[in-house]
């Protein structure tokens, strides 16, 4: 590949990172200074930082919902039906005269949970499956991979709809469904990372030194698998918030009156003509959160890439 910059001995990634501080050759940076460096890298990445802040604010608001929510999310005040965003109701009120901001804050509990919890659960299961398949290989690996191939034959949203459809609506089922559809994708990432780190020389060396398989997996392979999985998980979190919202929108989410964002969009759909803001405001929030997870994932990738650390 022809690259004029490479020819004159400069890496493309150096372009974006300005060289303010001279690089010190520290042989073994302390844990604290490594963390500090990582933080500096993240702080420099403005998009990732913005994503992190947005997510932190929303998560905090959801956790502290009883304290920060201006109204009872289910209190219906017919006088303010379809109220536009304004003084009394910051983000307006919906078709039943419920305060949209309060519903968003309370709904954040459900929506964030259905995005984040399944991703964590799936990450744990996939880690196990992917490590076993990737490290031991052979028939076990073949069976795992062929089974996963079957899942890849479905568009992911369709699989979610199918499972949610048979299990029925509800928060618990939604979490199960999203966990299940994530496992194939995450397992593939773990397996690939496991296989490539298994081939490394230090793993060979550990094996030659008589380390047991479980020791090698725990000490040599696992650390190399966690970073790609973490990056992928952040991106998938965003995607799963979209899928969860989609399921709720489809009528497969937690039943009313508990307000999650997808369901708010769905009820807003029926009054789109009278009051478009009822559907549009939660829509914007869903997209913003998905984007925030995306930025965070990109930021994490740069952060965990050993090249950005010196």
């Amino acid at each position: 590949m022809h690259d004029q910059l490479a020819q004159i001995g400069i890496q493309e990634r150096e372009l974006s990172i300005s060289h303010e501080e001279p690089e010190h050759e520290e042989p073994e940076p302390s844990r604290a200074s490594r963390l500090a460096t990582r933080w500096r890298v993240l702080a420099r990445d403005r998009a990732a930082l913005a994503g992190l802040i947005l997510l932190a604010v929303i998560a905090l608001a959801a956790i502290l919902a009883p304290l920060v929510s201006p109204y009872d999310p289910n209190a219906q005040t017919s006088a303010v039906r379809f109220a536009r965003p304004g003084a009394g109701h910051l983000l307006g009120a919906d078709e039943a005269g419920r305060d949209i901001l309060s519903r968003l804050i309370w709904g954040g509990r459900v929506s964030l949970f259905t995005g984040v919890a399944p991703t964590l659960a799936a990450a744990v299961i996939s880690l196990l499956l992917g490590l076993i398949a990737g490290y031991f290989g052979g028939v076990l690996d073949q069976i795992t991979m062929r089974t996963l191939d079957i899942f890849f034959a479905f568009p992911i949203v369709l699989l979610a709809i199918l499972f949610a459809g048979v299990l029925g609506a509800g928060l618990r089922n939604e979490v199960i469904v999203i966990t299940v559809i994530l496992i194939p994708y995450m397992t593939r990432v773990v397996r690939t990372a496991t296989m490539s780190s298994r081939e490394q020389e230090y793993v060979e060396a550990a094996r030659a030194a008589g380390a047991a398989d479980w020791q090698i997996v725990l000490h040599e392979v696992l650390p190399n698998v966690v970073s790609p999985l973490l990056v992928y998980a952040a991106v998938l979190c965003g995607l799963m918030i979209l899928v969860a919202a989609g399921l709720s929108f489809f009528g497969l989410g937690p039943p009313p009156p508990s307000a999650d964002w997808g369901q708010m969009v769905n009820t807003g759909k029926s009054v789109l003509f009278e009051a478009p803001h009822v559907a549009m405001i939660p829509s914007i929030l869903i997209v913003a959160v998905a984007l925030a997870f995306n930025f965070l994932g990109d930021g994490l990738r740069d952060l965990l890439d050993p090249h950005t650390l010196r």
């Binding site: 910059l5 004159i8 400069i10 372009l15 300005s18």
Partner: peptide, 12 residues
């Protein structure tokens, strides 16, 4: 010259 950074100019 290659202007690769805010204050960094490579005189190729």
């Amino acid at each position: 010259y290659f202007e690769v950074g805010a204050k960094r100019v490579l005189k190729a």
